[in-house]
Each structure stands twice: as structure tokens, then as C-alpha cells.
Design a protein around this nucleic acid. Sequence first.
DNA 1: CGATAATCACTACACCCGTTGTGATTGGAG
DNA 2: CTCCAATCACAACGGGTGTAGTGATTATCG
Lengths: 193, 193
Amino acid sequence: MARNETRRRELADAGLRVLARDGARGLTHRAVDGEAGTPVGTASNYFRSRDALVRGLVERIYERLTPDPEVHAELAARTPSRALFADYVRDIVTRLTAERDTTIALFELRLEAARRPEVAEVMTAFQRESFAGDVAFYLAAGLPGGAFEVALFHYAIDGLLLDRLTTSIDPDTSTDAVVDALVEGLLPGGSTA
Amino acid sequence: MARNETRRRELADAGLRVLARDGARGLTHRAVDGEAGTPVGTASNYFRSRDALVRGLVERIYERLTPDPEVHAELAARTPSRALFADYVRDIVTRLTAERDTTIALFELRLEAARRPEVAEVMTAFQRESFAGDVAFYLAAGLPGGAFEVALFHYAIDGLLLDRLTTSIDPDTSTDAVVDALVEGLLPGGSTA
DNA sequence: CGATAATCACTACACCCGTTGTGATTGGAG
DNA sequence: CTCCAATCACAACGGGTGTAGTGATTATCG
């Protein structure tokens, strides 16, 4: 009997929903079964321990958040420019805001990584890869600077997402306007209004 | 017998340490007692339920993170300028980085606020107040713009702190350099290198 | 100084969780 | 078709957790 990867994914997705909705405290084997609609014990069969469950969730996030190659290709085909990069950033923000559960779960796992080295390991790999991709795109767009500038964007966007997904200090401001302002300010060579 | 506020604070501080070290999952009455060195049952006496405990932690954070009036006054006495604001931001980042436990606990509570309205209430009050203070300082420094620009800083700095306190994408870059670049870019009227 | 009320240490209970084990079921290889 | 190995559903247990309750202690006030 083949390893049932589909069901494993479903369970992991259910786990991410639970993690987003109920927090680390609510993430239990039984809760995952409840969310996935599987009989009690199923999650426990697929992820033999709670650590294994968390690791499974990180790997699933890794799978879900790697950028869509189509969108990526489409963007890469366009003429490199400042506006192109703005679109790139906006796409990321839109996607992560839409996938609220995944993004909140991601924040939970980042905090978990601060405590558990094994989680940190998978997490670091994911972040580094994602970061490297962003830098590559940035350079391909012919923009000045490099890793340092992209890191600035990462910080700002993480903070923006956290604000948007939790208690916001400025809920009335359009998210796009914020992204535009960030691109304007953090990209070298911007207007200085 | 008077309400023992000192002990209540000690318990809350212990709770914040536990929350930072073990996460929401590890935050239990008994763990708080263990951390505080008080007999089992003490935390449960002071915070009658787990919800009450969490609320107590938020209130304690509120207490601990309100800016030091001395430092604030000292800064306010200086000539308003771009460099002054940079120092202001740097002070905040330094303080929050040093108080690692508190800051991580704060992130935990922000995620918790996304789930529990009662936590969100206290959290919103705290953030709004802190934000208003920053805006006031920003305006007093005679800098162009206002709430919108300060919000940008908030996002960027939250993201920076999260990066610094968990798995960093760019651990070798100096935090001060990042802050400088943010001030340079996000403050209207900066150089455009 | 005595009354009073809250703190404090400690106990007890019901509940839930992680983990492990055990047959029944299932689908593919020989 | 037959056998085999992995999946699956389910049960059980040891441990930890939230919560409430109970006297003893102690500080404060009339």
C-alpha cells in the first residue's frame, strides 16, 4: 500500500488552520483530526509525535508558499523596472494577506523556531531560499543595491502583514498605499517628495 | 490584608519569561509558580483562570514597555532634527532587543489578540497609545508628514525585531545599519544615494 | 488589642493530551 | 489468485492542566 501523500497534505492543511485559529496551545492530534474530519488517531498515525506534527506543518508551509512559477515567469518577462518590483511586492502581500491562516501559522512557527532548534533548521532553510529568490528577482530587475535592500523590504513587509492580520494600528490606511510608500522610500533612487 | 501588588508583578514577570521561553503552550499556572519560585497554587490564586493570567501579562507588558519618561524628556529637550528621530528609533530598537523575553512575549500576545477579542482590546489600547506617542514625538521633531510615515516605521521595526529575535535572514548585518537605512529611506526628504 | 478580611499554601478532582499498541482493512506484487 | 506490507480505526494509559475549595496565617483598622 502506497504512502498516502494526499491525506498527509490534507492533515497538514487542517493542522495549519488549527494553528492559526487556536494557536500553538490548541494544536493537538485530536484537534487536527477534528478539523480534517478524519477519525481520531489518524493525525497521530501520520505524525507520530507532536514534534513530527510541527515539522510536518513547516514542510507544508514550505510547499504552499513557494511562489507560483507562472506568476514569477510572467513578471520576469516584463521589462525590469521600479514599477515591476512594486508589482512583485504587491503580489506577495496580496497573496499572504489572502492566505490569512497560512500566514498567521507562519508567524506562530517563527516564534516556535526561536525555541526549538529543529524547527529553526527547517524554517531557516525556507526563509533563506525565499530570500534568495527575492534577491535574484531584485537584481534581475536591474535595481541598485542588493541583499541589504531586499532585507529591508522583508522586515517592512513582515511587520505590515503582522499589523494587518492582528490588531492594526492603522486599519484605515490602504495596504497598497503602504506598499507603494515602502517601494518609494526603500528603493534607492526614489523621489524624495 | 492589602492586595499584594508587588507579588502580582513578580508573577506576571515570571509569566512573561515562561511565555517567551516555552510559548503559549507552556504557559500554565504551575509553570509560572515554578519560574517565580512561589509555592504551587500562588499564580492560580492571583490569576483565577488562564484567561485572567493572559490578561495580567498584557497589562504587565503595558506597564513595562511604556517609554521611560526620563529618556523621553531628554530627547525632547534636544533640537528637533532628522538625527534626533534616528536616535529615538534606535533607542526603541535597542531597548526591545535587550528585553528579548518581553518582546517575544509581546509577539505571542499579538497573535493571541488575533484570536481572543478580550486580549485584542487591551492590546489595541496599548498599541494605539504607543503609536500616538510616537506620532507626537515625530511631529514635535518638526519632521514632514505624520501618522502615515510613523506607521511605516512601526511596520519595519516590528519586522526587524522579529527577524532579530527569531531565525534571521541576514544575521550578519548590523541592526543599527538597518535602522539608519530605514530612517534614510522612510523619512521624507532623505538623500537618495 | 481584638475583629476582620484578604492572602497564602496546599489539596482534590475532572478533564484533556501525547503516546503506544493492536487487530481489521486494503491495495498491489508475484 | 494469494500473500504481504502498510494504512487505518480504535482503545488504553500515564501524565499534566485548569479550576475550585479549605483551613491557617497575617496585616490592617476600628
